[in-house]
């Protein structure tokens, strides 16, 4: 078989889902022909989408039953509004009764949708609780990140609540986007057009070194699939460890140590250096496999 790899970054959310899961296994919940689009966008005279920019459903991945959601970054920057957020919350609620091997969130979002900002903010806080409740029930939640909008704003928080975070080099995670910081604080604080700098602050490799992402993969859907399948296998073997007082105390110490270690840092350069990547230029160019080998210390 000679299958051309499909770029994850460029693909639509529908294509990502179709090619990520086992062939023809995706069945959509709340599909577009039900026309649950946003009445709030319509009231503001803005274009609407039949699925409100997110599709949710069930599928198989390497034979594992999963619930899956894909945000469409090209529709309003994947931003979360009332309907969009409720679909994600509903999917996580379904997980409690259906008990899939995992819930997969293909995050591609700048965060809250400003046209319905209050509804979006509330939905994200509901989503945060829903992710935690799903994990508490022993069902892992994975975030997959490699789209043009990355995972920002509230979706950046939701992503860091996930059990596993699979990211490509082009994927980005953060809270406030570089453009927002530049607008409010000035170009000296963050030059959002300096792409190399943005990459060294938010990019997939930096997030992997810091441990916010748990897998770094190439920017093609097959690589995302392979990593997800591997993680599904891993989680099938052992139950999710409880997020108890001891675990959170340890997490607290790690985050405190990170804040102390990089207490004045404003550039990812130092993070790469301390991880043993001595030549910064070579990190950017280093193939993902080599990068992972170096980071995980395997020969």
């Amino acid at each position: 078989m000679n299958v051309k790899p499909t770029c994850y970054f460029e693909a639509s959310a529908r294509t990502r889902i179709a090619k990520l899961v086992d062939p023809d296994s995706f069945s959509e919940l709340c599909p577009p022909h039900l026309r649950h689009s946003s009445p709030h966008l319509a009231r503001l005279n803005a274009p609407v989408a039949f699925d409100d920019g997110v599709m949710v459903g069930r599928a198989l991945l390497a034979g594992h039953p999963v619930l899956i959601a894909g945000q469409e970054g090209k529709f309003n920057g994947g931003a979360v509004g009332e309907v969009h957020g409720a679909k994600l919350c509903g999917l996580l609620e379904r997980a409690l009764s259906e008990r899939p091997a995992a819930v997969l969130l293909l995050v591609d979002s700048g965060g809250v949708r400003l046209h319905e900002a209050n509804a979006g903010l509330i939905a994200i806080s509901e989503l945060m609780r829903a992710v935690l409740r799903t994990e508490e029930a022993g069902i892992p939640v994975f975030a997959l990140i490699g789209g043009s909008c990355g995972a920002f704003g509230g979706m950046g928080i939701v992503t860091l609540l996930c059990t596993e975070v699979v990211i490509s080099e082009q994927g980005r995670i953060g809270l406030s986007g570089p453009e927002v910081i530049e607008t409010v604080k000035g170009v000296d604080e963050f030059d959002s057009r300096d792409r190399a700098l943005v990459w060294r602050i938010t990019g997939g490799k930096l997030r992997r070194v810091l441990g916010d992402a748990t897998r770094l993969v190439d920017d093609d859907i097959a690589s995302f699939r392979a990593a997800t399948a591997e993680l599904l296998g891993k989680h099938a073997e052992r139950r999710l460890p409880a997020s108890d007082l001891a675990a959170l105390t340890e997490e607290h110490e790690q985050l405190s140590a990170r804040a102390r270690r990089y207490d004045t840092a404003r550039d990812g350069r130092i993070v790469f250096e301390e991880a043993g990547f001595t030549e910064l230029e070579s990190v950017a160019l280093m193939p993902v496999d080599d990068f992972n080998r170096h980071l995980e210390g395997t020969p």
Binding site: M128, R129, L132, E136, A151, G156, I157, V158, T159, L160, L161, I173, G174, L175, S176, P178, V180, I181, V184, K185, E189, F190, I201, T202, L206, R207, L210, D212, S243, D244, L245, L248, E251, H252, L255, R258, A259, Y262, T264, A265, R266, D267, G268, V271
Partner: peptide
């Protein structure tokens, strides 16, 4: 709101917020 700075983004402020959420949940 959240602190807007390159330093906080480098640290991964979203992860610190997620940690607070986990503590509330605990």
């Amino acid at each position: 709101g959240q602190e807007l700075s390159r330093h906080e983004e480098l640290l991964g402020l979203n992860g610190y917020f997620a940690h607070v959420a986990r503590c509330c949940d605990l």
